[in-house]
Write a protein that binds this DNA or RNA. Structure first.
Lengths: 132, 132
DNA sequence: AAACATTCTTGACACCGTCTAAATTAGTAT
DNA sequence: ATACTAATTTAGACGGTGTCAAGAATGTTT
């Protein structure tokens, strides 16, 4: 697994201890951390890191295409390290977000969307995850 | 067009001047007002209405099924008076949200979603609206 | 009118995210 | 190494969104 420093270098971002902590945290975290989740995690590795640096770094990573920003939960944006195209399922009871592989849903557009130039899309499903 | 008082009565909500102002505002507003949009509008009809009352009323209306709450814009929830099933298109330049009629897109699920009990879904499209 | 229940307002509060100024750090040149 | 410059980080202030509690106002019942 590529380590945080190489990742940062590959993206022309200077690897500082703070940024390394953020990257390590994002990559090992559950799949859809909020900025605050990352902040807490990064604090453990680098106790002096500030809120502003975490936000700055996350935004940098989004700019460079390492993360996607998703506004799905109320009140807070979440970050998605899965940058492949995929859909999302939101458990209405727990709020958990699950990735749905792109090819498990097929979306077919009918006529009538001529006014719009679509650059991307995704399906957002809501419901309950079955306890198996 | 049904007036605000009848709408409130129909939903077993006591029609007070403040609530009437909120309902009138939501129904005549552009299609996806934020809570703050509604607050500003309601202030014009009822200058003493408070922020808290606007939030309370909007949540009441969502409970009763008169509005849908959507978390699509960053930083703020928007309310959708269109409670028919429909999809959404978000203009990435302007942030404007357009409704896409339900039958203009067809979503077909493949096998593999057995773990999930889907209660609702929608497609979110992003891009640019063509200036015709 | 008195008692009661609803509703509304005000102001305080918590949270998210951004911004700024100042301090620290890293990088470069001498 | 030293000095200089640029990049980065920090702490705290700030604005916006949304919630909450206490009291004031309103309406209803008796």
């Amino acid at each position: 697994m590529e380590d945080a420093i190489s990742i940062l270098r590959r993206c022309d971002i200077q690897p500082t201890p703070q940024r390394i902590a953020v990257v390590e945290c994002v990559l090992t975290s559950k799949s859809h951390p909020s900025a605050d989740d990352v902040f807490s995690g990064a604090r453990e590795k680098c106790p002096t890191v500030s809120r502003a640096t975490v936000y700055n770094t996350l935004n940098l990573l989004v700019e460079k295409g390492l993360l996607r920003m998703q506004t799905m939960k109320e009140g807070a944006v979440v970050f998605d390290p899965n940058i492949e195209k995929h859909h999302h399922f939101i458990d209405e009871e727990t709020g958990a977000i699950y990735d749905i592989p792109w090819d498990q849903l097929e979306v077919k557009g009918k006529r009538g969307l001529n006014d719009f130039e679509i650059s991307e899309y995704q399906v957002i499903l809501r419901g309950r995850r079955k306890k198996k």
